[in-house]
């Protein structure tokens, strides 16, 4: 597929020889070495093989554990169908930002630790045979925050889908803006929405899948603009986090506040789907949306 814009030379952040990946800090992969997986919600221990088969949803309490971008893609896409886009697109520190440490160092550390260029992976994939563009956030990477590189990957992914044309599926798990990139992070909200418009022009669907958590600038831009919005059970979703709301307003939070189910009941989310049924549900949507009558030849399932 034609590359629309060639990125500026990335910061020399992704040196070729990255140290070996450490166990994933979120999925409890540290326990993998012991062959067991412990649910972070109910502390029940399960054999790793069982946890993996259950897509890291706890068989005891149905808690949906946060998973990384690569795992998410592996769970959703057909085997070996994912072909990553913009693998070299990373970096960005226009503010030369330093808080307690230089941002540059934090970013580099996250890249090494998570073996990712930034908090979003995107690429061409097939889901149930349907060609799609697939993007997935990684919450472990600086809270899945919306950096300039993430915004650019997202925008290019949407544009490639429009050009192909194929549906765009994005799984978001993001704390919102990345403070260290200042207004450049804020403006990614505008960039992503501008790029999504190309999909509308191409009459291609955007399926927005929300996972725990999806907050701030991410839900207040691209993630809320899915033609269909799907969410995992009990994911926390909202503009302002509960802690800040309580601090600022001293309001009492209603039960289930900002969960998927809470928003679903208020008409803001179309469907709440257990992760173990998510792939089948997406395939079902793609059967309808990828090749409707009158749009023959676009996005038809592969032979």
């Amino acid at each position: 597929m034609a590359q629309l814009v060639t990125p500026p030379a990335p910061a020399p952040a992704l040196a070729p020889a990255l140290p070996t990946a450490r166990p994933h800090p979120i999925t409890g992969a540290a326990a993998a070495q012991r062959g067991a997986w412990t649910c972070p919600a109910c502390a029940a221990a399960h054999p790793l093989a069982v946890a993996r088969e259950q897509l890291f949803v706890c068989p005891a309490c149905d808690h949906h554990t946060r998973i990384g971008a690569r795992q998410r893609i592996a769970q959703l896409a057909d085997a070996d169908s994912f072909d990553e886009w913009d693998a070299d697109l990373a970096g960005g520190d226009r503010l030369q930002f330093t808080d307690t440490r230089p941002y540059r160092d934090r970013l580099r550390e996250a890249q090494v630790r998570h073996q990712l260029p930034d908090a979003l992976l995107s690429g061409a994939a097939r889901i149930g045979g349907h060609p799609v563009g697939l993007a997935a956030f990684d919450f472990g990477f600086m809270g899945g925050s919306l950096s300039a590189a993430v915004g650019e990957r997202l925008a290019r992914a949407a544009e490639r889908c429009a050009q192909a044309p194929v549906p765009f599926v994005c799984v978001t798990t993001s704390g919102g803006a990345r403070m260290q990139e200042g207004v450049f992070s804020l403006l990614q909200m505008a960039k992503s929405v501008a790029a999504l418009h190309t999909l509308a022009d191409a009459h291609m669907p955007f399926i927005s899948i929300l996972a725990d958590p999806t907050m701030g600038g991410s839900i207040a831009s691209f993630a809320a603009l899915g033609d269909v919005i799907v969410a995992e059970p009990r994911a926390m979703i909202g503009f302002t986090g509960a802690r800040v709301i309580t601090q600022v307003t001293h309001e009492e939070l209603p039960p289930g506040f900002q969960t998927s189910e809470f928003h679903h009941a208020r008409g803001l989310i179309d469907v709440v789907v257990d992760r173990r049924q998510l792939r089948q549900r997406v395939i079902g949507l793609l059967r309808v949306l990828a090749a409707p009558p009158g749009r023959a030849g676009t996005g038809a399932p592969a032979a």
Binding site: I219, I245, T249
Partner: peptide, 26 residues
């Protein structure tokens, strides 16, 4: 900033902002 309160969240603050961004870009 947009109001950080319970009622604002219940009525879809994030969705409202996203849709307004879209309205400006069309």
């Amino acid at each position: 900033g947009a109001y950080p309160g319970v009622a604002a969240e219940e009525r879809g603050q994030a969705w409202a902002i996203a849709q307004t961004i879209e309205a400006q870009l069309t």
